[in-house]
Design a protein around this nucleic acid. Structure first.
Lengths: 211, 211, 211, 211
DNA sequence: TATGAATGAGTATTCATTCAT
DNA sequence: CATGAATGAATACTCATTCAT
């Protein structure tokens, strides 16, 4: 929930901003990014005017929420690298443990319009690049360890990761099992060679720009 | 694109109906289920009044599109069972090959509002039940064959299936590889036992009602 | 429910026409003259196309209904004169007894738009003129009899009559009593002279054209 | 044109509200309660959004106008009691003099739909009850004075009153004469006994709930 | 001729955004 | 600065009327 901006805000203004981001995040997750601005202001306990003073239009708010969440996800990736013993553990943690962060990207999936809004924002691009580079570090580490099959690329993993970033039919346990199944497919010495060639970090970044 | 209704429509009316469903499906996929009704009518080449004569409000249209697509998915499952040699092949085909059908379920994911619209419709419920029962047949067949690990349930597979029903970062090849990774995790004699207990057909149906 | 038109219709066409008029009369009374044309067609048991073949637009239908009812009211006035022993009795009957006919004019009161529609129609004008002339005959008769105070004009009576042409708070008995009270005020040798001068037949006709 | 609500509005908002009520009252009287909302907003000199902020739909506006007018009618009844020397005079004033107020109730008569909208509103019900109780006070006073025939009830008078609450063929003078005729029928020592039994306050209230 | 499908102008209503208090 | 009132463009939906079957 950090400001991510150059200028510091007065304490109360910062509190308002945080409440708005929190309310918007929740509303976007529950009701989609088209949710009425006035309702978001109400949930945040501020007037609609205050919301607009901080975020000049809906796009700005969506961007801010996305920046906030992507930044947190990058932080989580750094923490996973720092705190886990092996790269495999870091990978498992990143794909599986960060419940809240997992919600992050759902934002970008809720509506086609939102995708366009988010896509080009410089700060978001930087966070995304950070995340992918951190993931790349983990992936190569795990392949060096011999725990991750060598024919997958960082992009493959990222794809699997984004697949998990949705409400499935719902239950947490289900996603946990799905993750296990996927990780079983990722372990070194798997059954079948993968089709196509490894999707690397750069492939993924390129594809995000084009899509 | 079949009518799915009791009464036959006049030939031209049926054609209009089909065009509307087709246009709406496309518009919903491209732009989300909030896309302006007038634009959908225009894409279908009919007047706005014609659209509303057939579908009294947006919900009715969303429901009709969903019915159409879920029905086609059930048909595809039946075809997979009938035409593939092994249950494993049927599973691979169902998870991976039905490009168009895969788009089906994306509809239910585009917005929380859409989910509510679709959730209780009797015909959709029936299609969904059919799909799950057909999948159950495939899963048990594959386990009998010894090609599918015995500790996964139909629900586990369904979760994986829905995970694929999204635009990932985009590319088809990426999803193909992701599927391969998943299928590797599904083959008999995997590395690790799965956490929790097998998610069966009934678990899934129950969870869909509660969520 | 007579045709009131030059050309005879085929038997089934006439039946359709009558059903439409009946349905429209009922719908207008129950729901107002803005009631959807399609619903009126349905009530009449015909297709919307048939309704429009007979009545090219809503105005035509409203006019036809009004013609039908005003014509019946003129008939009733003639019958009252022919069948009642005294002019006073004819007056009482006309103001009070013609339950169905009383509903006639409510049509002209339901909406300002309807009033304009009806106002200038030649056939309606003729019916209205007939009604007023018949009423004039009754009024002068009653004054000659000495049963009606001499300082009221035909227009005064007509005003009282139209006042009754509404659903009051509802009950029939209430309107009957109201009529009695009014008639008590109309009897010869009343308490107070009326303000203004007698409103005659011509005054009323003139005022209808101007309003 | 008073607010009739708990919370005070900002001065400018109150002014807008009053203008809207005034414009709507006029438009409803001239053109009926189906008159386009946008036109009403224009007449009030506000944007359509402002109208909808204050009155969330047409029903709310109709209700507000009715509340406003019925309230004013109750006030007029109170003033008549307070300011007139005799109950008879109060009755005459109430039935005859309140030009503007007389228009009040026309609102409830314009369309069947409007009637439903208004019928159950608690504030309107209270105003209506107030009006009837005040009228009851006047009626009993006039009967005690000996100026009003004893065989009429408050309900009879109310029925006469509502009969006047319409545009007759139009002219003011006509209605004045009609009122005189009615009042002549109401004076003590009339010619004929009334049919049925006196319609009392409670009869009327009951009939309003049932109709 | 009867039918009901198609059309699109007309209205109600919502909600993003601006602006006065 | 915070607030919430005002605005009007965008959109959903209705229904009179026309036209193909």
């Amino acid at each position: 929930m950090s400001t991510e901006q150059g200028m510091r805000l007065r304490a109360d203004a910062q509190r308002n901003r945080d409440q708005i981001i929190a309310a918007a995040t929740q509303a976007f997750l529950d009701e989609g990014t088209e949710h009425p601005m006035e309702e978001i202001a109400r949930l945040a306990g501020v007037g609609i005017g205050t919301l607009y003073r901080r975020f000049p239009d809906r796009e700005a708010l969506v961007r801010a929420v996305a920046q906030d969440n992507f930044g947190a996800l990058a932080d989580e990736a750094r923490a996973a690298i720092a705190e886990e013993d092996t790269s495999w553990d870091a990978l498992v943690r990143l794909l599986g443990r960060s419940r809240v962060l997992r919600l992050s990207l759902r934002l970008s999936l809720l509506s086609p319009a939102t995708w366009h809004t988010i896509h080009d924002d410089p700060l978001i691009v930087r966070h995304r690049t950070d995340i992918l580079e951190l993931l790349d570090e983990i992936v190569r580490g795990a392949q060096t360890e011999g725990t991750l099959r060598p024919d997958v690329g960082t992009g493959d993993i990222a794809v699997l990761g984004t697949l998990l970033l949705r409400q499935g039919p719902g239950k947490e346990e289900m996603l946990t099992r799905a993750l296990s199944l996927m990780l079983d497919g990722l372990r070194a010495s798997p059954g079948t060679p993968l089709p196509g060639r490894s999707i690397g970090l750069q492939d993924l970044i390129t594809s995000m720009q084009k899509t």
